[in-house]
Amino acid sequence: MKPAPFEYVRPSSVAEAVATLEAHGGMARVLAGGQSLVPMLGMRLMRPSAVVDINGLDAELGQIEARGAETTIGALVRYSEAEASPVIAERLPLLRTAIRYIGDRQVRNRGTLCGAVAQSDPTGEVALVALTLGATVVAQGPGGVRELAADGFFVGSYANALAPEEMITGLRFGVVPARGAFFERGRKHNDFALLSLAVAATPEPDGSWRDVRVGMGGINDTPVLARAAAARLEGQRWDEAALAEAAQLALEDADPPEDVRASAEYRAHLLPIHLRRLLLSLVEEPRHG
């Protein structure tokens, strides 16, 4: 479990980091928290020509910025920092809830939110919340800054729309629905999810709900939106029949994998049950998860 040889580069600016990525023709990897990269290097599952350590770029990448309605999380913001941030608590409570399901304290002290998005694990909590809340991935490459919607960013298991010479510099959230709830089931405490769910919506005074968003993790090769389920609930009052139907409709966007955590069949069985219960908790619980 020792890495294959690689060049180690510690740039002093994002521009230099991007230049290094370009110079290695897409064969270099960015090191932020290293919680996924370092084990993969050790197991030689990944053999980059260079590791670009951006940990010296705190001034450029270490901030959580609240500007107008937007909240931007820099590429060096650790999970623990976001977890403890009053800005996140106030503006993105669903994200804060989800972070508590990530790894253990040591992992959260080191790992970064943007690193998780770049990793694009199909069970990743941050990716699921980013997708559910319609976040924007901010990336920088040789051609400059690109903004990519989270919806469409995740293109496969551990695969995303980022170009090999690009790096994520931040994750931006806009206004989010008034209520949110998060659910995750693994095989043990802080395990990778065999099923994770994020739901968000805003209740109207007339008892109906708008801006309904339903995200699912561990149920496909990327985190996915349960679009049919959300459509069934949008603008509706959530009576028992509506919730049950929406929960079943979620299966339309699911293609559950089969692995040591659970069979595809069991995941498909659990999905509507836990989605219905989670949506119910949104109705019953006036605050975020």
Partner: peptide, 16 residues
């Protein structure tokens, strides 16, 4: 072997 790493072999922690 399908689960020969600590990621996929579910040994309980104190929390479990």
């Amino acid at each position: 072997l399908l689960n020969g790493t600590m990621l996929d072999y579910f040994v309980p922690t104190a929390s479990d």
